[in-house]
Design a binder for these strands. Structure first.
Lengths: 245, 245
DNA sequence: GTCAATGCTTTGTCAGGACATATTGACGTA
DNA sequence: TACGTCAATATGTCCTGACAAAGCATTGAC
């Protein structure tokens, strides 16, 4: 179970060495070069092989341990435990999920307007009532079936959504490109019966709806986005891999 | 925004120094001694104050950064961003959730038997059909209202549930006490309408049910537990704090 | 008065070393 | 054969030291 691992380092790259190692290790695991159960060489040997110091090698391994892909045991060694780790729910984005699954999909923008926040919305965004916000309603289809109704509010001060084509790319992707970096999100997942509007839009009949409320924060602790989404439960579920540390 | 922090270290304790620091820092934040927005001293100053090296101090801070409570900015400093972080979904356990909320609750064990796994269950537990397993059905009440139906399967080889009082303590708590350590769990959260049995047990009428399927793994990558739970959506929702790294 | 250059502060990355401790297996003894 | 001891192995913790890079504020030139 030793390594036919070929890890290459680029010391002139701005990408930290430990990150280069972690990425290539993760790739090897995901591609099955290293399978669950395989032991990797000990830290010191790996560090020597790659011409790195032990702390740097440890930092690389630690990244994958945190992701739940590797397990270290003192006196024993480090082992692969899970090959496929579903994205750590890195702030679940439906669009990404669907794209990854390769399903045919499209999004219809029902409403995109800049307006003054009412009291409820302002509170959700930690703003004052009357502050400028974006209100965004979208309807998402998979294989031409309506799947989800996505309602979002964002502080207008943070990002400009004018002329943004939200039909062809996800909201989170746009935020990333605009330099808005998410750090923490509080999510609440529940279920409920559809109301009249939802039933009409989602054509869900008597299918229960899965609901997701999310408040997302940036580095500074400001609210970036508040979302209230509903999904047809016969077509969608949240899948999460949790790691206990 | 400087520190009236009083962190005490015990170098004779088996608890690592970085962990002692992290725990006391986290407590200070949770208790509001350090409020969101406050800046903490720089790493070097803190290390000197506590008589630690900078890497040790960094390691302590890093754990709180990973939890989403602190944010570091190069050239600027380290700041508190979130005071209350909902348990990182450390493998959500309903019992803990309810206990924390201080609600009056009780659990009824509907079935607890040791049996041979049928093919479906064996596959879920990554066992062979016919292997010994535990089957556990529980009904949970809050304020005397039925809230959730919990169905679990566990490999009999891993833990003995004979004479375990699952009415008065959570399953996960018992597993921890038995030395079974959880590392990774795959969860799937969805919604559905109640079937006849569920409607009868949960008296849910037409309330949609929130469903949670979970497969939990230990350090070795073996399946510890498979659970299929349903919750009354009018009484329960999953709350999760996600951290993007 | 505006803007660019510069320097200081703080975190980020990396190296190398030392000792502690858990685990395993081999060895020797009862 | 069974059990305890001990050594080898690998990770865990902690230290010192150094330089890089990003942010911010101040300074200086135009």
């Amino acid at each position: 179970m030793s390594d036919s691992l070929s890890i290459t380092l680029d010391r002139s790259s701005p990408v930290p060495l430990y990150h280069q190692v972690a990425q290539q290790l993760e790739l090897a695991i995901r591609q099955g070069v290293l399978a669950p159960g395989d032991k990797i060489d000990n830290e010191i040997a790996l560090a020597n092989t790659l011409g790195l110091s032990r702390p740097t090698m440890r930092q690389a391994i630690q990244t994958l341990v945190d992701k739940g892909m590797l397990v270290r045991k003192r006196g024993v060694g480090t082992q692969v435990v899970h090959g496929k780790i579903r994205r750590n729910v890195e702030l679940t984005s439906l669009y990404d999920d669907l794209a990854a699954a390769g399903q045919q999909q499209r999004t219809e923008v029902l409403a995109l307007r800049r307006e003054h926040a009412d009291e409820t919305t302002a509170a959700q965004l930690r703003l004052a009532a009357g502050d400028d916000i974006w209100t965004l309603h979208r309807l998402r289809f998979v294989n031409d079936e309506p799947l989800a109704l996505l309602r979002n509010h964002l502080p207008a001060a943070l990002v400009d959504l004018t002329d943004v084509d939200l039909a062809s790319s996800g909201l989170y992707e746009h935020l990333r490109r605009a330099g808005v970096h998410l750090r923490v999100a509080e999510q609440r997942i529940g279920a409920k019966a559809a109301d009249d509007q939802e039933r009409e839009l989602l054509a869900s009949g008597d299918v229960p709806l899965l609901t997701m409320e999310r408040t997302a924060f940036n580095d500074a602790g400001s609210v970036i986005e508040y979302g209230h989404h509903v999904y047809r439960s016969d077509l969608y579920a949240f899948e999460i891999t949790l790691v206990d540390r």
